Amino acid sequence: MSFGDPNNPYGQQPQQPPQGQPGYGYPQQAPQGVPPQQGYGYPQQQPGAYPQAPGTIQANNGYINVHGLGTVQVASMGLRFGARLIDGVAIAIVYWILSAIGLAGVVGASKSVDDCTGLDPMSSAYQTCLNDQAEAVGGMFAALIGVFFLLFLATMLYEWLMVAFVGATLGKMALGLRVVKENTGGKPGLGGGFIRWIIPTVGALLCYIGAILVFLSPFFDSTGKTQGWHDRAAGTLVIKK
């Protein structure tokens, strides 16, 4: 008789669970503070998850992850150039209409000016005629200034507000492009739209050379996002819908 364990008076050996199988009773838990061991192989991604963080280019293949939109295609320079041409035609039509209205007013004002020839230069009638001519010329000049101001205002409202609230101009909508905020994927808003408009506008004051450089600046972007200088300043991207 064995005088071993008092709880085991018959001296039977306790059965061990088969090797490789969990023991009997409750499942064993890992000690606190020790992370569970992972299986072999690479961690599997959830279905629909993107391998890169938002805002990163996927191997410079023309696609980018944008927060709130997922993976989207960056607009090519060919599509952006085509959209700019369509916008140019639309703005030119507005220019022609406003210019025709302004010129008609100028021509009408010039015909109403009295001819001072034949009047005595020493008479008061001659001086009154000269004053009327000076006022007419001033009115025509003011009309021309008003036409240029309306043209500038129309361009500003078209480029600024369309991008700010719609996310695209007529040209971009025609070619399936839109402008979004890089960090949110939403519309640029008033601030982003204004910054994106004002930079090429200021560049246009230098014989339009600055504006051309701004519109060509996406070619200089080495990140693959095709962002121009105005896009970087406004924090925007031009993508394909």
Rank of each mutant, 00 (worst) to 15 (best):
L153N: 10
V238M: 02
Q19D: 05
K181Q: 09
V238L: 02
F152M: 13
V137F: 12
G192E: 00
I212N: 02
T56C: 01
L161I: 10
T155G: 14
S112I: 03
A134D: 12
V34D: 06
P27C: 08
P43Q: 07
K172I: 04
G108K: 10
L161E: 05
V106Q: 15
I212Y: 03
P31F: 08
A142D: 13
N60T: 03
G78P: 06
A30E: 08
F219P: 01
G62T: 06
F3N: 10
L170N: 02
I239M: 05
N7Y: 13
W160H: 10
D87R: 09
Q227T: 01
C116Q: 03
K111H: 13
Q19T: 07
G139E: 11
Q32N: 09
Y40W: 07
I101N: 08
L213T: 06
L119K: 11
V166L: 10
E159D: 14
Q28L: 14
G4K: 14
G20K: 09
D221F: 03
L103E: 13
G235Y: 00
S112A: 15
K111Y: 12
G210Q: 01
N131I: 04
Q227A: 01
N7C: 07
Y10W: 10
L161G: 06
P188T: 00
I91W: 08
N8T: 01
E159W: 06
Q44C: 02
A90N: 10
P27I: 07
L175Q: 06
F3A: 10
S99L: 14
A75T: 04
K187P: 00
A233Y: 04
V137W: 09
T226P: 00
L144N: 15
I86V: 15
A83V: 00
P54S: 02
P14Y: 02
L144W: 15
V34T: 10
P9G: 05
N61T: 08
E135Q: 15
M140N: 13
V137M: 11
L103R: 12
A83E: 04
R196W: 01
W197Y: 15
G118M: 04
Y95M: 08
G23Q: 08
D114K: 12
S110G: 15
V137Y: 12
L205S: 12
A104T: 12
I195A: 13
P27G: 11
G171Q: 08
R178D: 03
